[in-house]
């Protein structure tokens, strides 16, 4: 299967590294060969019709001098000529316009490609439209990596809970806020100080609003709700409350009665909400550090809780790669 990767950030580089390392293993295990023929950056692309040397691209010190580099190559313009089976969309999330990811996904579908993405923006804003478009052209969009990084929630439901109705979904979907609240609890420190510490350690961005205001978690909740609860909804439908106003005193009051404060994303009875909530100290949401939790309530299997890493290059690449392999197997 021929793939084009769009985006060259942490997840993309991790994916390319893992692809370089594991392509033989994947071929032996599943009988599919994954050939990366294009990798698009903002200012151009590496393109090689016979397959790129991925290790070389990832380690390149001066990419513009690489033989396969094509200056200002743009996916939307070149998609028709690449002869690719699958586009892997890994550009950064934008919850206002969802671009450039939205155009990339549409172009890929229109050019007869299946799509694998880790980009939350397009699905958080246009899930119903994108799935309609994919159905029309009889292509797939797989998006395991968009929610809770390495946790295989969509695959779990799609492949192993086939006859189940998903009744509700709740989770800790953002590692940064979970890290901050965990540190505020263990160290009895105020939000601002812990945020600075998280930024120093690289757990939080310079502009932390995306995480601490619940924007990231809300985007993920929308994707979960559309995909698992079959509820047509969008980013604007989420009631959202961040964690900036949480005080060490509030955490202490909660602790006294056996509660922790966690930033939860919930869809119960069709109501989408991201807000700090009190959870019991022995609850399945009492997970510390930057871990994510997803809890499903289903009609047959009853409750299921998954805990795992919600971010990180290799962890997220794990989900992306599994989707790519699934598409390769389905296309065989």
């Amino acid at each position: 299967m021929r793939i084009a990767v769009i985006g060259f950030g942490t997840v993309s580089k991790s994916l390319l590294k893992v692809l370089a390392e594991k392509s033989k293993l994947i071929l032996n295990a599943y009988g599919v060969e994954i050939k990366t023929v294009a990798v698009f950056k903002r200012d151009g692309a590496f393109i090689n019709n016979n397959g790129l040397d991925l290790e070389r691209i990832v380690n390149s010190q001066n990419y513009r001098n690489e033989v396969d580099w094509v200056n200002s190559a743009d996916f939307n313009k070149l998609a028709g000529e690449l002869n690719c089976d699958c586009a892997v969309e890994l550009t950064p999330t934008n919850v206002e316009t969802s671009e450039p990811g939205l155009s990339h996904i549409k172009t890929a579908l229109e050019q007869n490609m299946d799509v694998v993405t880790a980009n939350k923006g397009p699905l958080a804003l246009y899930y119903p439209e994108l799935m309609d478009l994919a159905n029309q052209v009889k292509k797939r969009i797989l998006f395991e990596a968009t929610v809770a990084g390495a946790i295989p929630i969509f695959n779990l439901v799609r492949n192993t809970l086939r006859a189940n109705k998903i009744i509700s979904v709740k989770g800790i979907l953002n590692g940064t806020t979970n890290y901050i609240l965990s540190r505020m609890t263990s160290e009895k420190l105020p939000f601002k100080i812990v945020l600075k510490e998280a930024q120093k350690l690289g757990f939080a961005e310079a502009d932390p609003s995306y995480d601490v205001d619940g924007i990231d978690a809300a985007a993920k909740l929308v994707i979960l709700s559309n995909a698992l609860l079959k509820q047509e909804c969008r980013f604007k439908d989420v009631n959202r409350q961040g964690i900036k106003d949480i005080t060490p005193e509030a955490i202490e009051l909660a602790r006294k009665d056996g509660f922790l404060i966690k930033h939860l994303a919930t869809n119960e009875n069709g109501v989408l909400e991201v807000a700090p909530r009190l959870v019991e100290v022995d609850s399945s949401f009492a997970v510390n550090g930057s871990l994510n939790v997803v809890k499903l309530q289903t009609d047959l299997a009853k409750d299921l809780t998954l805990i795992g890493r919600g971010a990180g290059g290799v962890e997220t690449a794990s989900s992306v790669l599994n989707d790519i392999i699934e598409i390769a197997i389905l296309r065989r």
Binding site: I261, L278, E280
Partner: peptide
């Protein structure tokens, strides 16, 4: 005021 509710499991 900022309200934090409990979550029912």
């Amino acid at each position: 005021l900022y309200l934090i509710r409990s979550v029912r499991e």
